[in-house]
Design a protein around this nucleic acid. Structure first.
Ligand code: SF4
Ligand code: SF4
Lengths: 154, 154
DNA sequence: GATATATAAGATATATTTTGTCTTATATCG
DNA sequence: CGATATAAGACAAAATATATCTTATATATC
């Protein structure tokens, strides 16, 4: 009952991008170093974020990732579920047919409620708010005027 | 982000015992069949429930398990955590020292809140209530007058 | 006490998931 | 074209979860 590493990494990645702002291109390597995520693992996670429409991936010599939406419109829930799939605290929450008893089961109802609550809480957290204060990155993001990516600095 | 099978099985076991009532002895085999849990796996789970003080295990020819408390005093949370350990939605919730940034991290605070909420919801569910209606067991518990265990019937 | 039965305890095996790396291909810049 | 960065997916390693098996111990009954 724990977020996977991949999920955590996905959050770090989006948070790093959110600090730069919507549309600002940041190289994978730069993100990987700053958030302490293995670069190739980040690549895989980024692809899931891209498929979910959260980021855009640019290939080529000066490629990288960038946010497609304003950080205020991206929720923690969206990022997590883009990476690890829809949250389901018990098997029978996501797949009621996996247990013959789910229609009658009182425990099942508790799980449904808990699951709904959890997803709501994660949905209330947007990345503009999360990025506003010091947060998440192991190596703190260097202060800039917020408009220019600290491009050269790898 | 999902309850383990062992956790689910633990719940089923306690629910089955709760239907019989506090102090009523039920054999492991009987519970295993009724709840569709591999008997040896159930044994291991039961040992954890016993260590947590939820059930008592009786050895010997007519041994089995029985609840130590009234079902109304046993919460879903207690049973789950007896089996899978304290719930911690992200690594840094249970072990803040696992991430250097947890003191400042805004994401960390969201996880803490979500974790607290989840545990509260699971704590509000007691087994007297859960067992009151049809629930959880794959093979419905046979109706009796509630005082005598359906002993012979294996 | 002997025997049968049921669980204890822990070793072991299997399966699944997670995590991370590596290789080859492709896109872009200069 | 050559250098560089990511894409995509195969592959490998590690961790975890699930299940079973074996030997030991406790209890009831005879
Ligand atoms: S970065 Fe924040 S959310 Fe992620 S592990 Fe560290 S404290 Fe927890
Ligand atoms: S018994 Fe109830 S809680 Fe358990 S898996 Fe089935 S529906 Fe879900």
């Amino acid at each position: 009952m724990r977020l996977t590493r991949a999920g955590e990494y996905g959050i770090r990645c989006v948070l790093d991008l959110a600090r730069h702002g919507k549309g600002i291109l940041v190289s994978r390597k730069e993100i990987a170093v700053r958030t302490d995520v293995p670069p190739h693992f980040l690549a895989k996670i980024a692809q899931q974020l891209a498929r979910a429409g959260i980021i855009e991936i640019l290939q080529g010599a000066s490629g990288g990732y960038r946010l497609l939406s304003d950080p205020s419109e991206i929720t923690l829930l969206a990022v997590i579920e883009a990476v690890i799939g829809e949250i389901s605290l018990n098997d029978c929450v996501g797949r009621p047919e996996s247990c013959d008893n789910s229609a009658l089961c009182t425990v099942h109802r508790v799980w449904n409620k808990a699951n709904r609550q959890l997803r709501e809480t994660l949905q209330e957290a947007d990345f503009a708010t999360l990025a506003a204060e010091d947060a998440c990155c192991l190596t703190p993001f260097p202060k800039t005027d917020g408009r220019n990516p600290p491009s050269g600095k790898k």
